[in-house]
Each structure stands twice: as structure tokens, then as C-alpha cells.
Simulated scan of single mutants.
Amino acid sequence: MDSSIYLSLFAGKHILIVEDEYFLADETRQKLEQLGSTVIGPAANVQDALELLTTSEIDGAILDVHLGDEFVFPVAERLDEANIPFVFATGYDASVIPAKFSGFTLCEKPTELGKIASALFSAGNGAALN
């Protein structure tokens, strides 16, 4: 199925982007805004992302796994606790993801927003995320 049909699911959503590569984060931000999303961030590190979680409304998140010299897993834990759907976006192998997050969607970079929208917000797929 063509995942681009899911792009409209981003409309009106507040999406947290956690990505340390500026150009990739900015490109994703621009695409999401064109689809009608409000972008939270992008945050380039765990501390900034955790701060945004406490100060912003968030409907879903796109998380780069490796942020400089740290991993994004504390952010994933907080999102999971709050029942906010998220996806991991990474160029790394899935083996770097802790087993406790094995039910969450992993998208390879560059991110395909249609697949992400489906994973975050479509009926049936969202339940598998949390």
C-alpha cells in the first residue's frame, strides 16, 4: 500500500523532532509544517528534548537514536510513560534499540513521512507502538 495516503494524518498534530543533524531536522520540520503539523523542536540532545516534553503539547515524536555522544532512550522512556506514540529514525541497525522498545517502529534514514504517519496515527498501527 502507498504510505503517502497517511500523510494527511499529520494535519493538526504537534510533532516533536529529536535530531542532531541540522539539515535533516530542518528538512523534516519543513515537510511536517507543509502537511499542517506544528513542529516542536527540533531538539538536538536529550536534555532539550526532555525540557520540550514538559513544556509542550505533543501528539507524536520522531526520534533519532544516536544524538552526538548520547542515545535518545531517556526521551523514549518518557514518551512511553506518557502514552505518546513515537518512532525511531536511525541509520543504525535495529540491534542498538533496547529490547523494551522492540514494539516500537523503526524507520531508516532518510525518514519516510508516510510510513511514520501510519505508524504514529493510523488505526491498528498505533496500538502496536505502545
Rank of each mutant, 00 (worst) to 15 (best):
F101L: 04
L63C: 02
I15V: 12
G114M: 09
V46H: 00
E27P: 02
D59T: 08
E81Y: 11
I62Y: 00
R78Y: 04
G91H: 01
I58M: 07
I97W: 02
Y6V: 07
A49Y: 02
S37I: 12
E57V: 10
L53R: 05
A61V: 06
R29N: 10
N45S: 09
I5R: 15
I15N: 08
Y6Q: 06
S4W: 01
T54Y: 08
Q47K: 13
S118A: 15
Y92M: 12
I15P: 06
F10Y: 14
V39C: 10
F73L: 00
T90I: 03
E77M: 10
V72Q: 02
L79P: 05
I40Y: 11
F23K: 00
D48W: 04
E108H: 15
I5A: 15
D20A: 01
P74H: 04
F101H: 02
V87D: 03
D20H: 05
T90S: 11
G124N: 11
E19L: 07
G36S: 14
L120G: 10
H14E: 03
A119C: 14
L106M: 04
P42C: 11
I40S: 11
A119E: 14
S8E: 13
D26G: 00
A89S: 15
A117F: 13
V96A: 05
T55K: 15
E112R: 15
V72W: 05
E27L: 11
A99R: 02
T55H: 14
L52C: 13
Y22V: 11
D80T: 11
F73W: 09
G114H: 09
F86M: 07
F73V: 01
A123C: 05
A89Q: 07
H66G: 02
A11F: 14
S102V: 06
T38Q: 15
S102D: 03
F86E: 07
S118I: 07
E51W: 08
L7D: 02
H14M: 04
Q47F: 03
T55W: 08
T38D: 13
E57R: 15
A61D: 04
